[in-house]
Nucleic acid binder design. Sequence first.
RNA 1: GGAGGGAUAGCGAAGUGGUCAAACGCGGCAGACUGUAAAUCUGUUCCUUCGGGUUCAUUGGUUCAAAUCCAGUUCCCUCCA
Length: 373
Amino acid sequence: MKIKYELIKEEKHTKARLGKISTNYGTYDTPMFMPVGTNATVKTLSPEELKDVSAGIILANTYHLWLRPGEDIVDAAGGLHKFMNYNGPILTDSGGFQVFSLAKPKDITEEGVTFKNHLNGDKILLTPEKSIQIQNKLDSDIAMSFDECVGYPSTYEYMQKSVERTLRWAQRGKEAFNNPRQSLFGIVQGGEYEDLRRHCAEELSKMDFDGYSIGGTSVGEDKPTMYKMVEYSTKYLPKNKVRYLMGVGDPIDIVENVIRGVDIFDCVSPTRLARHGNVYTKYGKFNIRNAKYKNDFTPLSDECDCYACKNYTKAYIRHLIIANETFGARLLSIHNIRYLIHLTEELREAIKNDTILEYREQFIKDYYGKEEK
RNA sequence: GGAGGGAUAGCGAAGUGGUCAAACGCGGCAGACUGUAAAUCUGUUCCUUCGGGUUCAUUGGUUCAAAUCCAGUUCCCUCCA
């Protein structure tokens, strides 16, 4: 079935929204955070551990699974859920981000994007139709339109051309789409230009997607610019459909963008930072590798209810990370994902109570502490 | 007892007259990371009051100049007795 979004309430002072999203694999409250599992695994975590941190939808990647193991293998396994043993909803990204991270401008044409296969160097062409066909076969719950994620800064002229092409690609993808169990989202681009964001959002709305994403953020711009990009997008999107801000997961960015009307976030940061020893806490981010934690036998965070915090000390986890033991990366990944999901739980509570502005103020005080003043 | 080889920063290891406070790797100390080519990348690692000061086993010598050449001493390795 298609996903359904139900808007439960809007916060009194802001555009923050409390909602519910119903999927083939259960109903979840929004705002929510989706952990990223590019290669059909949220790096180092088992599905049981994802459940333990209250993860809902997770994200996998079309480009990566296309190259390896190939969508036919996933199909033969009975679809992505069975293949990776995940009994929750899965969203697949289209490969649009790889246009930003892997392709060069000259590789992008009206037809699609030519990539240099990062595994063996082959030249391969990904088109809007191909991306959708792969996603149909992967049988994720939500497929994304194939878009061009444009870096920042970018000229108005380029962005205008790119937005028009992304709109045409969205239409082509929609026409190629063929999986009744799956939903399809359109992606708003347009950089920091309000008229382009508006145009893109309105045209996509006319095409009537099952949900809408905001793309082209966290590509080098500063935070105020990112927040503007989001405002210029949510402002022109229908209220009865879910809004997903792609690739954003810095804690403050989640708070700020919930306030601007975003329902869903995803980000690699909790798992990547974990592998690099960084730990999110209410009182800011720290690096467990620092020598000062050598003798620290307290948990990562006193506020956290995750498996790592309930059972292990900083000194032990530091030892694991320094010794390059995978269990350390796993414990920190569990913790960081749990931190971001818990953050969305608090934000939902604040929306319920119409206190999100107070929440933001307190959040900044706690998270940035002394450095801010 | 004899013959040869070697001793370089926390460790390993380049360097064989000036461009050497000394490559590189490891280890140490920090930093970055936002739809994952990322268990990756970057900086730093003799002392310093940032002017400079002391280093290449050690002592002495040659030279305008020595980690680099010469001699003594100590220790280590290989082979022969």
